[in-house]
Each structure stands twice: as C-alpha cells, then as structure tokens.
C-alpha cells in the first residue's frame, strides 16, 4: 500500500531547495507588487495526510483566504497560498495603495486583488521550477475562498481527488520586517509520489 519513494536526507534537501528557489522567485514578484521587502522561512518538506496540513496553519475555524492553483503537465498537483484574515486585508491595502488598516472587509475588488497575488505567486513558482528542471508545467486559473480554514482545506482535498494519499507538503511562511506591515502566509505544494521521482530525475538525482 505504501508506494511513496524512499526519501533520504539529501532528497529532502533537494525538495527544500526546489521550493526555496520557487518561492524565492514568487516572493520577489510579490515584493514588487506591494513595493515592500518580504521574507520567508526556510521551507519544510514532509509527507503527511492532507488533513494534517490544517494544524500547520491554525484552528479549523480560523478565518483565512486561500488561493489555489492546479498544476498540470509533468508535475501535476496543487499549489496553494493561505493568508490569515488580517494579512489578507493588509495585502489588499498594499495592492490598492491604501493606508494599512483601511480595508476592513473583503469585497469583490479585494477578492480579485488577493486572487491576483495568488496568480502571480504560483506563476513565478512554476516558472522557477521550469527553469531549474525543464519539466513542462502549466498552471490553471486560480480558485479563491475566504472562510474557515478546515472547510477550505478539506473541500480542496476532495475537489482535487487527493483523498486517499499522503501528499508531499512543502510549507513555508512569509513575513515582513516591519511588524505592523507583517503579512503572514502559508504556502503549500501538494503533489504525487510519481511527480517527485520526475523532479528528482530532472535534477540529476537517481531514484529507484
């Protein structure tokens, strides 16, 4: 039943490196969009059942925004970005050039602004992996939700058909130097065991 590739420490390092480069590229794009410097923690790569990803972010009833983008091509999977509600509103302010604290509710314009952030982030993530591995990847139109964390993640898991399996989760969080402008977000890349083998092979690792 367990058909996941055996991952050594150096494989995990490679995965971290991939997401480091992918996310680094994505964050540069985000920093340009909001005209601020944004940092991230060193990504963590693990295998886990998708439902456990909830507790990495917060409580099941926590209000978050989520932009999810399905990837197709040689590395099929899902890329998703989660922002706390506070950070979501700050992101809208930054994107619209408003003073921080102006936006108090997420309206339709705000939603499309956050969706655009997700679009830019996932696009630059995918292109960074492409230039590293030459694996063909396409990203679909982003889906958006702003509601309870648990409801969002389980629905996403079911909608993408990733229910049975454990998934590779690459997780990182974002932050800014100025505390009041802090954007805290989580990033997940979910993919299948077969895709991981392809990624490794493209990077010159041998997988059995």
């Amino acid at each position: 039943m367990n058909k996941y590739p055996e991952l050594s420490a150096s494989h995990m390092d490679a995965l971290r490196e991939i997401s480091n480069i992918g996310m680094g590229n994505a964050l540069t794009s985000l920093a340009q969009l909001v005209n601020r410097r944004i940092n991230m923690n060193v990504p963590v790569a693990t295998f886990m059942p998708f439902e456990e990803t909830i507790s990495l972010v917060g409580g099941p009833e926590e209000l978050v925004s989520c932009v999810s983008v399905r990837m197709s091509g040689e590395v099929p999977g899902l890329v998703l970005f989660l922002f706390s509600s506070e950070s979501t509103l700050k992101l809208v302010d930054m994107l619209m050039g408003l003073d921080l604290g102006t936006t108090r509710e997420l309206d339709e314009i705000g939603q499309s602004a956050v969706m655009e952030v997700g679009n830019v982030l996932s696009g630059s993530f995918v292109s960074a992996i492409y230039s590293l591995t030459s694996l063909e990847m396409k990203s679909a139109v982003p889906l958006f939700a702003y509601d309870m964390l648990g409801a969002i993640l389980t629905s996403l898991m079911v909608a993408s058909g990733r229910v049975e399996e454990q998934v590779l989760v690459i997780e990182t969080s974002l932050f800014q130097e100025q505390a009041e402008a802090n954007i805290s977000g989580h990033f997940f890349m979910l993919t299948e065991p077969g895709s991981i083998t392809k990624l490794f092979n493209a990077l010159g690792f041998q997988m059995t």
Partner: peptide
Amino acid sequence: GAQMFSGLDDKMTLNIG
C-alpha cells in the same frame, strides 16, 4: 455540502458538496 471555491476549473470536482 457547500461549494467553498469561486472560480472556474473544470478539472476540479466542485459539486462534491
């Protein structure tokens, strides 16, 4: 049985709720 996501992606099963 809600539909949490807005947006169009026909490869995702959004009517599962």
